[in-house]
Design a protein around this nucleic acid. Sequence first.
DNA 1: CTATTAATAT
DNA 2: AATATTAATA
Length: 328
Amino acid sequence: MREEDSNWFARWEDELPPPEELMPLSQTLITPDLAIAFDIPSPHTPTAPPTATPTTPNHHLHHHQQPQPQPPSNPSPSHQQQPSSGGDFADSGDLGSGAAGEEPARTLKRPRLVWTPQLHKRFVDAVAHLGIKNAVPKTIMQLMSVDGLTRENVASHLQKYRLYLKRMQGLSAAGPGGGGAGGGGSDAATDHLFASSPVPAHFLHPAAAAAGGRPNSEHFLPFVPVPAMHHQQHHHQMAAAAAGAAAMQHAQLQQQFHRQAAGHFGSPPNGHFEHAFLSRQQQQQQPQNQQQPFNRMGGGVSGYVEDMESANASGGRKVLTLFPTGDD
DNA sequence: CTATTAATAT
DNA sequence: AATATTAATA
């Protein structure tokens, strides 16, 4: 137990690849152009959209970072969204009456971020590396270097993560002595995702860490090898990846999901996954056009992941799934 | 004014 | 339930 404490950070670097090697993390941003092209509607129907047209989960939006007006250079025919049977474009008709006459297209809403175990791991590593003190959203986000990740994303996750930690501490301290039924488990269905990554000891036993060895970096570790974001604007640029690589990732992801979130969208009859990933995508400044040949690969992988789940009353939900650096 | 956290909404 | 968004506060 203690030993781990002593070297937990010795290997963190091992797990966290330097930015130089920072594997092509990927970001998953919807392509505004695509959306616009498709006339993604912004149904101002706050009250339950009708039955059909689930593809219009948009309401209003207002905030931050979305890379510049994504170069429309993506008029590419990569419409391979969902091979739903031919001519399914029918639904793009005029979805949401509002679409016409409004220009919500410009302001696109970002798909929900899906915290994959990998992402979460990066998160935990970053938090651990920073130490509870500095583990604030912004810093974590920077350390994670996951392009596309926003501060709010991290903040939200952090909030939940803290709750999880607390829950664990409570259980640990008070002793699960309860019958077990009411106590709630630290693993299993209660915290599926969180349980998948080991929580650094100091997080659970801050006292012990402080009292004994204090592996907390807190002051050393120059980290932040990340390009650094100066303002609050990221630039996302899509780079075309090798089709093979992308395909592989795709396959991997599917596998992963099958074993990890198998209960989420793996098996449901109406659950489908159409995940795609990008490749290199750090914050770089590039001419606003110059999009690579994009993913016109045979597989049909898009630069972002767009998945709709009709399992929710929310209607269509786009899911953004970032991809981990591949170290794991 | 910006970032963080807590609360709340979807 | 998992994330997002808002509100209040530091």
